[in-house]
Amino acid sequence: MVDFQLDAKGLKCPMPILKAKKVIKKMESGQTFELISDDGGSKADVPPLLNKTGCTLVEMKEDGGVFTFLIKKD
């Protein structure tokens, strides 16, 4: 079970990042967040966002162009 989920499929850069940041702002230390995106740029864009906002990428899965990021707030 994750604490937050966001399905950002269909959104293109920078919208998955901007919407993800809104979720990250609500997170407390230790909470988890699953972000799903089919924007090809997300693979490169999500890790820098996490670096800058005190989060860790626990896992990233790719399945047929759909990326699933498991994120944890430090």
Binding site: I17, L18, K21, L49, K52, T53
Partner: peptide
């Protein structure tokens, strides 16, 4: 718009 909003999201 794109750089401004993304940079802001990245705490810059």
């Amino acid at each position: 718009v794109i750089l401004g909003t993304t940079g802001a999201a990245m705490e810059t």
